[in-house]
Amino acid sequence: MNMPQTPTSVFQRLRFVLVETSRAGNIGAAARAMKTMGFGELVLVNPRFPDMTRDAEAIAFASGALDVLEGARTVSSMAEALEGCNFAAAVSARLREFSPPVWTPREFAGHVAGQGELSAALIFGNERFGLPNQIVEQCNVLINIPANPDYSSLNLAQALQVLAYECRVADGAVAPASNIGFHGDAASLEQIEGMFAHLEQALVQIDFLDANNPKKLMPRLKRLFSRTQLETEEVNILRGIARQIIKAAK
Rank of each mutant, 00 (worst) to 15 (best):
L82G: 00
N179R: 14
I145K: 04
F129H: 11
P105V: 12
N126L: 00
V162E: 11
S178Q: 15
A81V: 12
A81N: 02
A93L: 07
A89Q: 04
Y151D: 01
L163Y: 07
A186W: 03
G194Q: 15
F182I: 11
V136E: 07
N140D: 15
S188R: 05
N179L: 12
T104S: 13
F87C: 06
E190W: 08
E83G: 04
A113T: 03
D210I: 05
I206F: 00
L209H: 04
C139N: 08
L160D: 00
L131R: 11
V174K: 05
A157D: 09
Q161T: 12
D185H: 12
P105L: 08
C167Q: 06
G116E: 06
F129D: 14
A197C: 10
G172R: 13
E83W: 06
G181C: 03
E200I: 01
V169K: 11
I180L: 15
S152Q: 09
I192H: 07
F108E: 05
L131K: 03
L142P: 02
A121Q: 08
G130W: 03
Q134E: 15
I206H: 09
A121V: 09
Q201F: 02
E127H: 14
E190C: 10
N126Q: 13
S188H: 03
I145L: 02
S92H: 02
G110N: 13
V174C: 12
Q134I: 09
Q115N: 15
N140R: 14
V102F: 01
A147D: 09
A157C: 00
A81G: 03
A113I: 10
S99L: 04
V136F: 02
L142A: 10
V174I: 15
M78W: 04
N155P: 06
E83N: 07
E127S: 08
L209R: 01
L199Q: 06
R128M: 10
D150S: 15
L203A: 05
A81K: 05
V91G: 01
D185R: 08
A186T: 06
P149A: 03
Y165C: 07
L199K: 00
N155K: 13
G114Q: 07
A159K: 10
H183K: 09
A177Y: 10
A79C: 10
G125P: 08
R168T: 15
R106Q: 11
R96W: 13
M195N: 04
A79T: 12
G116F: 11
H198R: 07
F196E: 09
V169W: 00
I180Y: 07
N148G: 04
I135P: 11
P146Y: 04
V136P: 01
G110P: 08
L189W: 01
A147T: 14
A93S: 14
E166L: 04
F208N: 10
A187Q: 13
A93T: 06
S178W: 08
Q201M: 09
C85P: 01
Y151H: 13
A202C: 14
Q201I: 01
D185Q: 12
V136Q: 02
F98V: 11
I145S: 09
F98C: 13
D150T: 12
P132N: 14
C167V: 07
V174E: 08
Q115Y: 06
I192G: 09
P132T: 00
P132E: 09
E97Y: 04
L154N: 03
P101N: 05
S152E: 11
M195V: 05
P101C: 02
A170K: 08
L82K: 06
E137F: 02
F87I: 02
V162T: 13
D171C: 13
